[in-house]
Design a binder for these strands. Sequence first.
DNA 1: AATAAGTTGTAAAATTACTACATTTAGTGC
DNA 2: GCACTAAATGTAGTAATTTTACAACTTATT
Lengths: 283, 283
Amino acid sequence: MNILEKITQSKAAFSKSERKVAEVILANPQTAIHSSIATLAKMSDVSEPTVNRFCRRLDTKGYPDFKLHLAQSLANGTPYVNRHVEETDGPEEYTKKIFESTMASLEVARQSIDINVVNRVVDLLTQAQKISFFGLGASASVAHDALNKFFRFNVPVVYFEDVLMQRMSCMNCSEDDVVVLISHTGRTKSLVEIAQIARANDATVVGITSKNSPLARECNLVLSLEVPEDTDMYMPMASRIAQLTLIDILATGFTLRRGGKFRENLKRVKDTLRGSRFEKRTD
Amino acid sequence: MNILEKITQSKAAFSKSERKVAEVILANPQTAIHSSIATLAKMSDVSEPTVNRFCRRLDTKGYPDFKLHLAQSLANGTPYVNRHVEETDGPEEYTKKIFESTMASLEVARQSIDINVVNRVVDLLTQAQKISFFGLGASASVAHDALNKFFRFNVPVVYFEDVLMQRMSCMNCSEDDVVVLISHTGRTKSLVEIAQIARANDATVVGITSKNSPLARECNLVLSLEVPEDTDMYMPMASRIAQLTLIDILATGFTLRRGGKFRENLKRVKDTLRGSRFEKRTD
DNA sequence: AATAAGTTGTAAAATTACTACATTTAGTGC
DNA sequence: GCACTAAATGTAGTAATTTTACAACTTATT
């Protein structure tokens, strides 16, 4: 909540001297944050305690606290807002908007995540015999990415694009297998069926999806991501990014759980890639 | 410039005790701005003058001035600093850190993007006869995602995981084709070769990669993303997210350029998916 | 006009930040 | 390994800033 607005709004509740202080601050807030209470009192032609009382009336702890609030208000307001792209936007605008709304979505996602579930899923993954990642449409690339990450960990990891292959794979599941299903809406029929098949074969099913969705109801554990999606674009954007970040988190939890020696393995995998790359020039 | 970023950047220039202060502030900046220099000194287990010196090293007038800057940075929406995950971090910490460093990377990526190049790439894509997206390893899933997006636009779009298929596809390129190559490092040999093959066949090659890399030198246009990657984890994380966001931007630019009628098409594609989904419950 | 409620200022107390200097630590050459 | 130098850190005292307590003043009400 912006304190400058609050000052203008509360003007009526101020006394004569307090209003003088308000005027001076509104006239030149930048100066105000760099002044001491004595300077500001002199500028407003009131006494120091009056300035102090003025601050308290705005629900701040005192003058320094007030300056903090003021500084924050001046730091050009609300940045990462989920602003929608308009028909008339040029490259500059839509680039900015997409970056900002992606960041805003990540912020929302972060707050919606249940750490305890994350922890339990990491537990499950580290103990799994086989890990499967399945997603369809836009979530397929997320599953693909998960494959790439967990493959490096030298654990049996499975990923299929093909729905039939996914089904067959789940039919062969056993008790110690974990199946991770990714879907933004959680309403894709074939994926819900896959969850049922996997469950029927005693696998543990983890859903990265929206809570209270049909898919979520079929899962043993749900990592719910409540990310607002700009439906005007008819394309999933922010949800994927949040899902991927969650994959990063699971992968990180996995490596940490497995400990230091395991990390050395990872380094070996990375070093193996070196042969396929051009050396970095040292210029 | 954001003082939180400045702290992380100047970390090398700090002394041992000053670094202790930096850690405490980065770990909980919200607490820091509400603490006195004495409290902060105690929290960091250093003396008060050390905190003061720390502030001055960051080009602030002193502790109160530092707090002002800090408050502004926090208000500015970017409390997102690329902090590295530690061996000892619990689920709560690493989840927080990964989200924050992902957001920080997006912020960096945003600033490194050249809007003019974005615009020219969108131009190219809208006029292309055929669009190909190729990436290897972690970038494969990004190309996969691009396929999913551009496929909806009813343009011929190509994606292969297989290097040989990628090569063959590029051999058959012609003048009006655009090949988009995705690689964080830009030093993957086979991808550089694919760029050469595509160029030899008169296709326009767009690189989503690091500038001045071998791949970048083979491209007609380079969308450079300078994203810092946490190399301790030996896994690409932030780079992918930035690449995906860039794909979103290109896709958005594409739809905007094609105009309103085209957007209706997109809606049709989305509506077609409805049959494969459970209806949303209206409870 | 008297009184009460509210407002403002003075001066002293308390908190907070800063400076000067002493001590410790780390690094370098012999 | 020792002496010397430079850098880093802490101690204690000082200066500044803010806050409190209370007195003086203003305004409104009967």
